[in-house]
Each structure stands twice: as structure tokens, then as C-alpha cells.
Nucleic acid binder design. Structure first.
Length: 387
RNA sequence: GGGUCGGUGGCAGAGUGGUCAAUUGCACCAGACUGUAAAUCUGGCGGCCUUGCGCCUACGAAGGUUCGAAUCCUUCCCGGCCCA
């Protein structure tokens, strides 16, 4: 059995569970750090492990293009290639349809505050992403090369990568939601899920990881009817688990929670539910209450690189953040978080880590990344303890 | 002592008669970051306020030329290098 529920919360839909994979079990609710290109940026596999991570999430699209899934197959699969012996999720490449295509490049919602992060790129993605019923093609603005990803292709790449949990190729749009495009995304995602499911069974015998699982993805933006439709259609295809997608695309949090609320009632109780790309500690807490089991997000790792450390205040799940780059820490010889036992907190001072950021020393990024991941994993421990 | 090149905002360093309160980088301050085109990006950064294409003080110091000077002239102070 892939997923067992150990305990259910009485007041909410939260559950404590075990997700079993070919490379070990995951105690849920769990946070899965993102290692897009077979690397959790700045960390060695030992450091990922010591941060408390139970699993990681890599990306089909990125690894397909570089270094190539065949090379990773030759290496013996992702686990051997990157020296990570725990469970690995692989995202399907569906997010890149959005992030390299649909997202408005001069004014992506979540980077809009300051005017966008590549202000000269105009409204069009330099990747020239084209969607058809068959799949998606990406044309690089750099060398003109065209890469076509289909649901079947994504399955085959993930089979070569040898991940433990593969995701089907999906399609979704950003915020603000539009009914018509949300309908299209549900329709296409279901169609692609059927094809991905068939391909998964067809090539199972030749996959690098014979125990690989496949999760379907629920879409439907912020629409109750569409989420219901999507959840029903996807669950009818009998995947090993589900992912809820199309959230954290710049929408108000209320809509994110609704997307979960609208989807969960139509997903089998005894299958795991992953919430894609989420999120802040608050987002995760709220989503666990609404029945989600696993989460992946770049926040702890990216923000660590940007100097933001997450620190528990000492009371329950409450936390604060500190920007270690600030001058006020230059002479602060306390540890980042006196109550944390990650390597950075156990061995180094705020003053030292501040100094590392000042001199742009990569060690600073490593220490902070490991710390933030430990924070997220401690958060999940607290959540599990409270269910 | 002689010659020469220079002294610009916290630092480095542009500018060489008007559109200069002064390019840019660093530092500093503030903000953003959600299935990673992100060790990234955005904004602020002399003072005052009635926030105006406002006023004041500013490009070593003091004078001067000019309608107008960081920019030209004179003297002084300081620094680098070369010669004695």
C-alpha cells in the first residue's frame, strides 16, 4: 500500500500518514525541498539529509535538456547520479509551460511589486512556448532550438530519471483566473493524464525505478465546479496519488485554500495529496488542515540565498524572519537561532554569516539554506505532532 | 626647493562653462520572492518643506571672470610621482 493514514485530526481534515516509496517512507505531512536540476542549490546530499529533508523534488524539463535523461539513466538514475538515496519526486515540466510561457514576463504577479524582474524582456517570453492538444513546444530565444514535450515524453523522461514519484504533464494559467482558460486547463490536463497513465503502464518494465509511482494533477483555478470536475476525472484514472496544481500563481491566499477545499472532497481518502509549489509556513499549515499531505516550494532555499532566515520565536508555530545581510548583525555573536541545532546555528554566529554574505562567500548560502530547510522540517514535525 | 599630475557626495570613481544635487559601482536603508531563466530583482540614498520640474547648502579653501562655474583664472592648503 502506497499510503497509510495513521491518525486523523478531529477538528480539521489534517491527517498523519506514511507515504511509501521505493527509496523509503515519508512521514506526512512533509515538506519536500526543491532540487530542480538534481541539486538543492548549494547543498551536498549529506547537508540535505541533515536538514531533516525526507525527500526532494527534481524537474523533468530541466534535466531533460541538461544533462539529458539518457545520461542520468546511464549514471544509474537520479539517486545515484546525485547521491541521494531517499525518495525523489519529479515535476513533469508542466510548471515550465507556465513559468516560461504563460506568465507575463514584464509583470509576473508575484514579482510585480517592483516592476518585474526582467524589465526589458517585454510581454513575450523569450522561450516562445506553444501549446497544442498534443503537447508543448519550447523554442529557446538563445539558440533557436525547439524542444517538444508531450505527456508521453514526460513519462518516458521520468522513467529514465528513475524518480520515486512522477507527475503527469499538466497545463494551467496564472492569476487573474479566467473561466475559459481554466476550463481549457482542466480539459487538457485530463486528456494528458489519460495518455500519461497509459504510457506509464506501457513502459513500466523498462523504467529505471520499477517501483516508480505516478501522481495525477488537479486543475481548475479558483472555480468550484472546475476543481470538482478535474478531481473527479483525475481520480477516475486511478493514480497512486494526487497533486493539486495551479495555485501559488499570484492569487490571494483565500483562493489557494479554496482550490484545495474544492478539490479534496473528490479525491480518495487513502491516497496522498501533494500541494504543488506551496508555500509559506502559514500556507502549509492551512493546507494541512484542508487535507494536504506533502508540499514543495523554493521559498526556504531561495530566500536563504537572499539572506532571509526563518526562526521560531519559541511559542508553538510562531516564527519570525531576519535578513542576515543587515548591518545590525555585523557584531551580533549570537547564533542565528539559539534553539536550532542545524550546523550553522550550532557552530556559527550571526556576525560570521553576515560577514560571509558581505564577501559573497558561497559558504553563507549553504549555511543559510541548510538552516531554512531545517526550519521547514521542524515546522512539519510540529505539525505532525499536533495532528 | 623645482617640476608635474591630482583633490567630487560614507568609499571608489565619472563629469571638464548651462539640461548637475552631480553617471556608475560598492556600502547603507526599505521592499519583493510560493511545482527555481532567481547567490536574484525593485525602490530610496545632501538638507528642508506648502513635494514644487520648490528653496537652501554642496564638487579642498578663499577670491575672481561670466547672464551662468564641479568645470575657466589667481592665490593658498593637502596628496601622489619625478628631479634636487
Amino acid at each position: 500500500m502506497v499510503f497509510s493514514i495513521l491518525k486523523k485530526d478531529k477538528k480539521t481534515k489534517a491527517r498523519l500518514g506514511i507515504l511509501r516509496t521505493a527509496h523509503g517512507n515519508i512521514m506526512t505531512p512533509a515538506f519536500i525541498p526543491v532540487g530542480t536540476r538534481a541539486a538543492v542549490r548549494s547543498l551536498a546530499s549529506d547537508e540535505i539529509k541533515s536538514s531533516g529533508a525526507q525527500a526532494i523534488l527534481a524537474n523533468t524539463y530541466h534535466l531533460w535538456l541538461q544533462p539529458g535523461d539518457n545520461l542520468i539513466k546511464k549514471a544509474g538514475g537520479l539517486h545515484k547520479f546525485m547521491d541521494w538515496d531517499g525518495p525523489i519526486f519529479t515535476d513533469s515540466g508542466g510548471f515550465q509551460i507556465f513559468s516560461l510561457g504563460e506568465r507575463k514576463w514584464s509583470a509576473a504577479p508575484h514579482q510585480h511589486a517592483g516592476g518585474g524582474f526582467l524589465k526589458n524582456s517585454g510581454n513575450n517570453s523569450p522561450f516562445n512556448v506553444k501549446i497544442s492538444d498534443d503537447g508543448v513546444s519550447f523554442q529557446s530565444g538563445k539558440d533557436g532550438s525547439v524542444h517538444k514535450l508531450t505527456p508521453e515524453k514526460s513519462v518516458r523522461i521520468q522513467a529514465n530519471l528513475g524518480s520515486d514519484i512522477s507527475l503527469v504533464l499538466d497545463y494551467f494559467c496564472g492569476y487573474p483566473f479566467k473561466r475559459e482558460s481554466a476550463e481549457k486547463s482542466v480539459e487538457l490536463t485530463t486528456k494528458w493524464a489519460e495518455r500519461a497513465g497509459k504510457e506509464f503502464l506501457r513502459i513500466k518494465k523498462s523504467a529505471v525505478n520499477k517501483g516508480q509511482l505516478q501522481f495525477g494533477i488537479i486543475q481548475g483555478a479558483g472555480y468550484k465546479k472546475l476543481r470538482e470536475k478535474s478531481a473527479k476525472e483525475i481520480s477516475a484514472l486511478d493514480f497512486d496519488g494526487y497533486a493539486i496544481g495551479g495555485v501559488a500563481v499570484g492569487e490571494p491566499e483565500k483562493y489557494m485554500y479554496q482550490a484545495v477545499e474544492f478539490s479534496v472532497p473528490f479525491l480518495e481518502e487513502n491516497k496522498p495529496r501533494h500541494l504543488l509549489g506551496v508555500g509559506t509556513p502559514e500556507n502549509i499549515i492551512e493546507a494541512v488542515k484542508r487535507g494536504c499531505d506533502t508540499f514543495d516550494c523554493v521559498i526556504p532555499t531561495r530566500e536563504a540565498r537572499h539572506g532571509k532566515a526563518y526562526i521560531f520565536t519559541g511559542e508553538g508555530l510562531k516564527y519570525k524572519t531576519m535578513d542576515i545581510k543587515k548591518k545590525m548583525f555585523a557584531g551580533d555573536f549570537k547564533s542565528l537561532d539559539p534553539n536550532c541545532d542545524c550546523f550553522a546555528c550550532a557552530r556559527h554566529t550571526r556576525a560570521y554569516i553576515h560577514h560571509l554574505y558581505q564577501i559573497k562567500e558561497i559558504l553563507g548560502l549553504r549555511l543559510m539554506t541548510e538552516h531554512n530547510l531545517m526550519f521547514y522540517n521542524r515546522l512539519m514535525e510540529k505539525i505532525r505532532a499536533s495532528v
